[in-house]
Design a protein around this nucleic acid. Structure first.
Lengths: 232, 232
DNA sequence: GGCATGAATTGGTAGGACCAATTTTATACG
DNA sequence: CGTATAAAATTGGTCCTACCAATTCATGCC
């Protein structure tokens, strides 16, 4: 903790205690600031700073007049970090797509190996929703949901967290006119990914996902950077 | 912003203004809380909450009595999110390694295509440092630095941000006795990755990195999950 | 029972006081 | 003049009280 050499600040201590409380109690709402201030024996200011920290970390949603709700949106911090690091939307989309091309074929491969029946059901339901939906906003949501479900089916929580963050970032960009209307190709591609997962064929799932993302990149008007031909 | 329906909170507004200030001025230190409170016309409490947010986002380091230093550690939030989501260290390491197996070969491939002369020099210097170092802590640092430099050389900032976060998380685990002493193999593997990057051979770089990470996984005693043989 | 209004509750903000850690300044000594 | 030490100033951390803004709950009316 850079703030002190040895002593831990009250805000640090209290935020840790709130995390423990949330984990131990499975509450869906936290007590009020005033109550916790009395219970923990600290000022309301310290509670505020601690709870604001947890809000930023995606663990709480805080509403004036309404209280604090416990949520699980731990992917939020990455979304904002990426936003801060790469403020330009086009650049960000290019880079996110490259990262997806690395990550998602492996997610699909692992999903083919690890998906439960419930995972497959969710994927199939989502695919059907995507196939049938008409408006752009619902398309974007179903499209991203399909990808997040695959990440979940891979049984890798870090990967899933990354995918949720990427999904948030992508939804913003895709809703801003970066999407051309080629839903039918995406539906076809998703179908191939899903079929390979259902067949437990990891290689096919990875290839189908790679093909899909390559199509999506073209669809979004994002060309890969030209290959360098000069030696160092 | 869940806190209000339409109005943006002062903390939100002020934190945005501080980000703009940091970006516009290239200051390495921020003015004091009291000064900003007067300048922005808000209470010190609001400044505190705003600056604490930026500290958590990896943009500031705050020290009592000393002031606020502007830093660029935007990867920090992901590190803590992963820590919150996957508290068990062994599980986390398994999952991080899987993510690395997806991400890093592509980073190496792109680095082979995009690395500048300066990138290559840094990689070579780092590799030499790794080769010559003796103590475990320096090994871990040089090892992770090599990987982060490759991510930087890929010219993808999102990827680089991810790698920095993964590196932080890994350093913690690797320093806790998860590492067996097989530095020579890692030096050999890094050498192969570097040679492929220098040769501008993306495929070879990706393969060398995949091989390296496979070795590292074995080295760390992390076995892949058994393949499922049952159809859905 | 549904709707409108007022009261209570809960988070948001302001400001002043005081404490704790760091930096700067002043003083003493060789 | 240079160095070490102490004191003062500065800067972040915490506490308290008061008041504002948004939401929820209770009450009254039709």
């Amino acid at each position: 903790m850079p703030a002190t050499k040895n002593a831990i600040s009250l805000v640090d201590s209290v935020s840790g205690r709130i995390v423990d409380l949330v984990r131990a109690s499975h509450l869906d709402r936290l007590p009020t600031e005033r109550f916790m201030s009395a219970q923990f024996g600290v000022s309301r200011g310290v509670i505020r700073e601690a709870t604001k920290r947890l809000e930023l970390q995606g663990m709480l949603e805080i509403r004036q007049g309404s209280g604090m709700k416990v949520v699980d949106k731990l992917h939020k911090p990455l979304s904002s970090a990426v936003h801060l690091r790469v403020p330009d939307e086009k650049t960000r989309l290019v880079q996110l797509t490259e990262v997806r091309l690395a990550l998602e074929p492996e997610q699909a491969r692992l999903a083919a190996e690890r998906a439960t029946k419930a995972d497959l059901k969710r994927l199939q339901d989502c695919h059907q929703r995507f196939t049938l939906c008409e408006d752009l906003e619902t398309q974007v949501l179903a499209d991203m949901e399909f990808h997040c479900l695959i990440a979940e089916a891979s049984r890798n929580e870090v990967s899933s967290l990354l995918m949720q963050s990427l999904s948030d970032l992508l939804q913003s960009s895709l809703s801003h006119g970066y999407r051309r209307v080629t839903k039918d190709l995406a539906v076809d591609d998703h179908g191939k990914v899903l079929a390979a997962i259902v067949d437990r064929n990891g290689d096919a799932a990875a290839k189908a996902m790679r093909d899909h993302l390559t199509h999506a990149r073209f669809d979004l008007g994002l060309q890969p950077k030209p290959r360098r031909t000069v030696k160092a």
